[in-house]
């Protein structure tokens, strides 16, 4: 079925078209949800809520831009609302406590690269993880993130900086990326 046929079918509340849309986009969207969620069950709940919004808000799609992008934005907003609703941000921790996270790391299965990166992101504290997901992967600006999470734009920036540093640490520790070589300090060598 073409994308236009799916959209037309969904506008007519046709279950076959809705199923086709779901089959086509749900794998990618579940991956999005999983990066925001604490576990797979939460991710599936987010996905479910997101697709219900997609089907019920289909008439608002203006055919401007990619259809997948439109769905993705709905799913991301649904994830954020889910986290707010369930007060998932309350267990936020700061960078000082990041070392404790390595205990959890042992439970993360070692699978293919993309999945490994996702699992590393999921090790981050909720606030860091959310900002990192929104900024680095989903492409939202810090202003938009601030509006979405009800935080200052500067807070979003600082959270992102810390999140990125923590993620790098985790990725290096798990040998997913190499530790960048430090620049040779000629002054120190000469001293």
């Amino acid at each position: 079925m073409t994308e236009q046929a799916i959209i037309a079918g969904c506008l007519q509340n046709d279950s076959t078209a809705q199923r086709e849309l779901y089959n086509r986009y749900s794998p990618k969207m579940l991956s999005v949800c999983y990066r925001f969620a604490q576990n797979r069950e939460d991710a599936e709940d987010m996905l479910q809520d997101g697709f219900i919004k997609v089907f019920t808000q289909m008439h608002t799609f203006q055919n401007k831009g990619a259809f997948e992008g439109w769905i993705r934005r709905i799913i991301v907003h649904t994830c954020i609302n889910f986290l707010k609703k369930n007060k998932k941000f309350n267990d936020n921790i700061d960078l000082a406590n990041a070392q404790n996270l390595y205990i959890k790391e042992e439970t993360v299965p070692s699978i293919m690269l993309g999945k490994q990166v996702i699992e590393c992101i999921r090790l981050l504290p909720m606030g860091y993880k959310t900002v990192l997901n929104l900024y680095a992967i989903e492409g939202f600006s810090h202003r938009e993130i601030g509006d979405m999470l009800d935080i200052e734009e500067s807070t979003s920036r600082s959270q992102y900086t810390r999140a990125k540093a923590m993620l790098e640490t985790i990725l290096i520790k798990r040998n997913i990326i190499e530790k960048p070589k430090e620049d040779f300090n000629w002054l120190a060598a000469l001293a």
């Binding site: 990618k28 579940l30 991956s31 999983y34 996905l47 993309g114 990166v117 992967i137 492409g139």
Partner: peptide, 12 residues
């Protein structure tokens, strides 16, 4: 990160 993860799929 974007290249690595944007097309990642999971099956519900």
């Amino acid at each position: 990160l974007r290249e690595e993860l944007i097309d990642e799929k999971m099956y519900p």
